[in-house]
Measured scan of single mutants.
Amino acid sequence: MEVRTIKVFTTVDNINLHTQVVDMSMTYGQQFGPTYLDGADVTKIKPHNSHEGKTFYVLPNDDTLRVEAFEYYHTTDPSFLGRYMSALNHTKKWKYPQVNGLTSIKWADNNCYLATALLTLQQIELKFNPPALQDAYYRARAGEAANFCALILAYCNKTVGELGDVRETMSYLFQHANLDSCKRVLNVVCKTCGQQQTTLKGVEAVMYMGTLSYEQFKKGVQIPCTCGKQATKYLVQQESPFVMMSAPPAQYELKHGTFTCASEYTGNYQCGHYKHITSKETLYCIDGALLTKSSEYKGPITDVFYKENSYTTTIK
Rank of each mutant, 00 (worst) to 15 (best):
F32P: 06
A150H: 03
D38K: 07
T27G: 07
T11S: 09
D303C: 08
Y297K: 00
Q237L: 12
W94R: 06
N157M: 05
N187I: 06
V185R: 05
T103S: 02
M245A: 03
D287S: 00
I45L: 13
D23G: 11
T116R: 02
T10D: 06
M85L: 14
T211I: 06
D62G: 10
T103R: 06
C225E: 07
G257K: 03
I315D: 15
Q175L: 09
G82I: 14
V304E: 05
E168Y: 14
I45S: 13
T27M: 12
L290C: 11
V166W: 06
D63Y: 07
K93Q: 12
E253D: 10
Y28H: 05
D165P: 01
T199E: 13
Y137P: 01
N89A: 11
R141E: 13
D38S: 09
L114F: 03
G194S: 02
M244Y: 04
C285G: 05
K95E: 14
L126Y: 02
K127E: 14
V203I: 15
N14Y: 03
R4Q: 13
E162Y: 08
K44A: 10
V206L: 04
G161V: 05
H90S: 12
I6T: 11
T35I: 15
M209N: 15
F148A: 01
A87Q: 07
Q196N: 11
H48Y: 07
T116D: 03
P131M: 05
Y84S: 05
A145Q: 03
R167E: 01
V99Q: 07
A136I: 01
Y57W: 14
A145L: 01
L59M: 13
F259H: 03
D165W: 01
K183A: 01
Y306D: 06
K183T: 10
P224N: 14
I277L: 06
E253Y: 05
S79P: 11
T282S: 12
S25F: 10
Y306L: 05
T199P: 04
V185L: 04
C193E: 00
G202Y: 04
V99E: 13
A87I: 08
F242T: 01
I315T: 15
N16Q: 07
Q237S: 14
L37Y: 13
A154V: 04
I152A: 10
M85A: 05
S246R: 03
L37A: 11
V236I: 11
Q197R: 11
S294C: 14
E52A: 12
K280V: 09
Y311Q: 11
K219L: 10
G29D: 08
S104H: 00
R139Q: 11
F32I: 14
K44V: 14
N178A: 11
V160R: 00
T19Y: 10
S263R: 05
Y84A: 07
A145E: 03
Q134H: 10
Y234F: 09
V58M: 08
K233I: 15
T64Q: 14
K191E: 15
N16L: 08
K191T: 14
Y208E: 10
E253N: 10
N129R: 15
G210R: 03
T169H: 07
N16C: 06
P249M: 04
K316E: 15
A69R: 02
F305A: 02
T260V: 15
C149V: 13
V42R: 07
A150E: 00
S240T: 01
H48C: 10
Q195A: 13
H18Y: 11
T199A: 09
H176P: 05
T10E: 08
G29F: 09
A154H: 03
Q222V: 11
L114R: 06
Q197M: 12
T55K: 10
P249V: 15
W107L: 05
D13E: 15
D180C: 04
V67A: 13
K293D: 01
D109P: 09
T313F: 15
A108P: 01
P78W: 14
A205L: 01
G53M: 14
D41I: 12
D109V: 01
A146P: 04
I223A: 13
R167V: 06
V160A: 07
Y306P: 00
D13K: 09
R4F: 03
Y297D: 04
